[in-house]
Design a protein around this nucleic acid. Structure first.
Lengths: 204, 204
DNA sequence: TTGCAATTTAATAAGTCTATTAAATATACA
DNA sequence: TGTATATTTAATAGACTTATTAAATTGCAA
């Protein structure tokens, strides 16, 4: 029961956001009494934290794509782009949740900060990504660029591909198939733009 | 009074989103009775629509950067990137409002769709942008790319530069100056990535 | 079976929310 | 000045919110 409340809360928070989801809604979704939600999680805020942290760590865990040291940078980039596209495609509402409650709700950031820091410290993915980028620069594979900015470039293009698919899909009246095709195009365009935009120019 | 209610609502909706802003909050912000908000705008939803449309049209109006036909594509790109960075820098909460209520709230999209379509039909900016992109392709200035994707590339990088500045600023404890420096770096990185990532390769 | 603990329920307190109403005040115009 | 109109207010209905309480129910072990 505790698990199914968590699962229902997870769905509803992601779909509608924190404010638009009541503990009554969650109970209705589960098919139980509203007081049960509070019996297991005491407060709505506490339940949300549990949901958020769970989703956050599940996502962060999957960001950790294999980073073989000796490997060329561009195959690595392809893997990252593909993996990130797939992660979001599997759970697009999670991106909504993060944008809604992390990016837009500055109050909630404070309570999330600790979780974020802890994950960053435990996971060394970003540090190793930076090393791979530095190595690629030294080998003349890519131009000079701050690894953080390189990473933001990637994430920007991936996340916005999905957001634009969602919005354009509605606005232009695209069906599921057309949206899928658009996303596939975005995946290739993202990779192309990054590869070419990061490559070391020969004529320089 | 009607105008000052609209202004206060504009601020609060952008800061906190629709659900987290009550008509009582708006009245308090203005310094008037809560019933006045309903006297002038009847419903909260109606007031929000007015706010949203106003902000939307104000932004769309500014997207219309000069598109001289004969001009090279890259100066045009620089203008677009600079203009978009400046627009968001002036009113970062507006981006939040759009993300919150347009991207994330699928219900509200329906009511916004008409406004969007009307603006797209009236403004020919996007059509002319596409023409400029096609011309640049014919002249061999940029590689082959669907103009829509090119535009999404630009918008993705610009908007996410601001979102990441906001989030990283909080998470890493950056002060206003450091955030400003980060944004300036993002602007250059965005331009560099686009110029190089869109350029027609010589060796092809 | 009995008794104890865990779970689930109904009822409700205390507060907020949107929206409406009628009364009070301000404004404009004859 | 008097009167019609516009604006503003206080009061409140009615619905919904989170959270708590005590009572009812279930499951299990002695």
């Amino acid at each position: 029961m505790e698990a199914s409340i968590l699962a229902a809360a997870s769905r509803l928070f992601a779909e509608r956001g924190y404010n638009a989801t009541s503990t009554t809604d969650i109970a209705r979704e589960v098919g139980c009494n509203q007081a049960l939600v509070h019996y297991y999680f005491r407060t709505k805020e506490n339940l949300f934290q549990k949901v958020f942290i769970s989703k956050f760590e599940s996502i962060v865990g999957r960001l950790r794509v294999p980073l073989d040291e000796g490997c060329d940078f561009f195959p690595l980039l392809r893997t990252i782009v593909d993996t990130y596209f797939d992660i979001i495609a599997e759970a697009p509402q999670t991106v909504h949740l993060f944008l809604n409650e992390l990016v837009l709700d500055t109050e909630r950031r404070e309570s999330i900060k600790a979780v974020f820091m802890e994950n960053m410290a435990r996971e060394d993915f970003f540090r190793r990504f930076c090393q791979a980028a530095e190595t690629a620069m030294q080998h003349g594979q890519i131009r000079k660029v701050e690894p953080l900015h390189l990473y933001v470039d990637i994430v920007s293009l991936v996340i916005f591909s999905h957001l634009s698919a969602s919005v354009l899909g509605d606005l232009m009246g695209m069906d599921a198939q057309a949206t899928g095709a658009y996303l596939a195009q975005r995946r290739e365009e993202t990779y192309t733009l990054l590869v070419q935009g990061l490559a070391k120019k020969q004529d320089a």
